[in-house]
Design a binder for these strands. Structure first.
Lengths: 225, 225
DNA sequence: ACCTGAACACCGTTCAAGT
DNA sequence: ACCTGAACACCGTTCAAGT
């Protein structure tokens, strides 16, 4: 008995909706909350029903990453310098990943498994090889290391992660800062001095902009030009 | 009945040995194989015995990371340029992490939780602030992003990860390369061209050296000097 | 202080069966 | 083709009890 209404109980399971709710769950309750059984329940179905659409949990997580990467809107190629275009590509990636600090890490080992990931890799490699003149081996390493850098930037943003509410997050940040301030200033003077920056993030946009600066500066620094 | 021999069955549980075997298990069977119950069994003890030494699994993993970081031998400070010393520090980190691709990722969110991690952060910040002249906020971000970059370099090394034997690993690398070669060369020409570099690692030492080059080049590129 | 035993509330996954 | 039911072999963790 199929229904066209949006009842919670459906005869037909939509794998795309499963993936979408996995994304929502991960950001609101953490990566560990992505569970075959939980997803099945939310979609009014038996856990085993999911196995008709995903070979196993690994494949479901692959699909989550693909969904995320598919939201990246690559900027159109221009005739501006390669490093300016690279900056725009990396910014486009950050735009998508920033709202998903919990799921971002899944991407580290799954970029090349999906079409949108290949498109991102292709574009990055193109700028590095045709634009900057890197040999393809170096371009491959630079491309993956750079994307991974941005991902960890999102995943390790001070004050990111999972908290019940804003107050809980501010509390955790305060605790972390207090911990860093309470460390021996004789042994760790710079850590104490930088306790603020290490525990929170005064300017979030600035944090990510500087992250891109650092990555692009690295590319230019080792470029053959 | 305590025994001084190295029987598997001991009355007294050594938390350090538990952490050490967790490290061994993770590298031989994957991160998911680190299990309270498994560790308890290996040490001839009830699962609940571990809770006398670790508040929960999270704290055990913190200890695993601390154990790993404690093996880092920071090079003595010299009067050479800051970027050369930085290179030496990062190389020292890589020396320790390279044999532990499966556990490396645990470090991403745990560096500042342990003493050896603080020592590493202190040293890195010192070179960036006193050596390169960065303001402490920028130094903090550069330091964490750089360490994270190295960690993901280890964790995502092509051909790294978990395989039954050398043959299984070579098989996986071949499959991955075949997958990348079989992609549309019209849509993804650079990916196809770089399939080799993206799926395996011709020169592992060169791979890691270049990774350090890239990170240090980024630091120098954004440095105020 | 340190460990045990039993139990609770979960997991992913296989297999056979239903429609 | 797609979903269900029951079962298997696991998890982390709490609580009360032992020595």
């Amino acid at each position: 008995v199929t229904t066209t209404s949006d009842d919670k109980i459906q005869r037909r399971l939509d794998p795309i909706k499963v993936v979408e709710s996995a994304l929502v769950i991960a950001e609101s309750e953490g990566l560990a909350a992505i569970t075959i059984r939980r997803l099945a329940q939310d979609h009014g179905v038996t856990p085993m029903a999911l196995y008709r659409h995903f070979r196993d949990k690994e494949e479901l997580l692959d699909a989550v990453v693909e969904q995320l990467l598919s939201e990246v809107v690559l900027p159109e190629p221009t005739d501006r310098p390669w490093h300016e275009q690279m900056r725009a590509v990396l910014a486009a990636v950050l735009d998508v990943f920033r709202p998903h600090p919990n799921t971002a890490g899944l991407t580290l080992t799954r970029i090349l498994l999906s079409d949108p990931g290949l498109a991102l890799a292709e574009r990055t490699l193109g700028l590095l090889v045709d634009g900057a003149g890197f040999p393809k081996e170096e371009a491959a390493e630079i491309a993956s290391q750079s994307i991974c850098s941005l991902i960890t930037l999102v995943a390790t943003e001070p004050g990111a992660g999972l908290y019940a509410d804003t107050e809980a997050r501010e509390d955790a940040v305060r605790r972390k800062r207090a911990m860093l301030m309470s460390v021996s200033p004789r042994r760790y003077p710079h850590v104490v001095a930088a306790a603020d920056a290490l525990s929170s993030c005064a300017d979030r946009d600035g944090y990510f902009d500087f992250g891109i600066d650092l990555v692009v500066a690295g590319m230019r620094g080792v470029s053959p030009a």
